[in-house]
Amino acid sequence: MSLQIQLSEHPSEEERSAILTPLLAHNLAKGGDDGHETFALLLRDPASNEVIGGLYGKVSYRWLLIDLVSVPESMRGQGIGQRLMHMAEDIARKKHCIGIWLETFSFQAPGFYQKLGYSEFARLADYPPGHARMFYQKVLG
């Protein structure tokens, strides 16, 4: 059998799934059930009930990944981000997580996460050029 490798510049969801399915099966066989759960803490505009920000997280393998955090610029500096992060930590503790991890850019909020007790564990320089992608973790006690 001759293997063919083909470039797909716009892969379909079906093609992605064909790659992902055997990978997930391998992960399950080696790492066990990841207990994958997602949640969101939604910031809603009181007048329109529209979601204007919040936090989106995923729990797997007893670690919480904070995937998205967004607070409208006009509301920054009022402790809303800190409240979201503390609420996420409470969720992580209730779900018996070992810790929390996240990624951010050097032009976003690394200082914010450091003030909350997160430590940098990896950095990808020049992503985007002139900046860095940074990875933080906090082990829960």
Rank of each mutant, 00 (worst) to 15 (best):
T104P: 01
H26I: 12
L64Q: 06
A88V: 05
Q4R: 09
V59K: 05
G111V: 04
S119A: 04
H36N: 07
L20Q: 13
G99L: 02
E89K: 02
I5V: 11
S17C: 10
G35V: 11
R133D: 09
S119C: 07
R133H: 14
Q6E: 09
Q108G: 00
G81Y: 02
Q108T: 00
L41F: 14
G57K: 08
L102A: 03
R133P: 00
M75H: 15
K115L: 03
H36M: 12
Y113P: 01
I98T: 04
A18K: 12
F121S: 15
E13K: 14
A29F: 03
N49R: 02
P11C: 09
W101Y: 08
R123D: 06
N49F: 00
S48I: 03
P110V: 03
W101L: 00
L64S: 10
L116I: 07
D33S: 14
A88P: 01
A122P: 07
M75A: 03
I80A: 04
M87I: 02
L24I: 14
F107D: 00
K94F: 01
D126P: 05
E73H: 04
V69D: 05
D45Y: 12
L23V: 15
E13D: 06
S74K: 15
R83C: 02
M85A: 03
F112E: 07
L7M: 08
D34T: 05
K95C: 01
K94H: 07
G117P: 07
E14P: 05
P128V: 15
V71L: 06
P129T: 13
S70H: 14
S8L: 09
E120V: 08
A125T: 13
D45W: 14
E73Q: 13
F39L: 14
L43D: 07
F121R: 06
I80N: 00
R83T: 10
I52E: 00
I91S: 00
L116G: 02
D45R: 06
Y127K: 06
L65I: 12
R16M: 15
L116K: 12
E13C: 13
Q114H: 14
G81N: 06
G35W: 13
G57T: 13
H96C: 04
L7T: 05
D45S: 12
S8M: 10
D45C: 11
S48A: 10
A29M: 06
Q4A: 15
D67R: 09
I98E: 02
K30P: 05
A132G: 06
K94M: 07
H10P: 00
I100Q: 03
S48T: 15
K58F: 12
V71D: 08
D45I: 03
A92N: 02
R83L: 07
V59P: 04
A88S: 06
P22N: 07
L43N: 01
R83Q: 09
I5N: 02
I80C: 01
L7P: 01
A47D: 11
S48F: 02
G31M: 10
T38K: 02
Q4N: 11
L24H: 10
A25H: 08
D34R: 11
I19F: 13
D67I: 13
E15V: 14
R76H: 07
L43V: 01
G32V: 11
D34I: 01
G57N: 05
P129M: 06
F112L: 05
Q82H: 02
P72T: 08
D45T: 00
G111R: 09
E89T: 10
Q78A: 01
H10V: 12
P46A: 12
D33E: 14
G81M: 03
L28D: 05
V59W: 04
F105H: 04
E9C: 09
S70F: 14
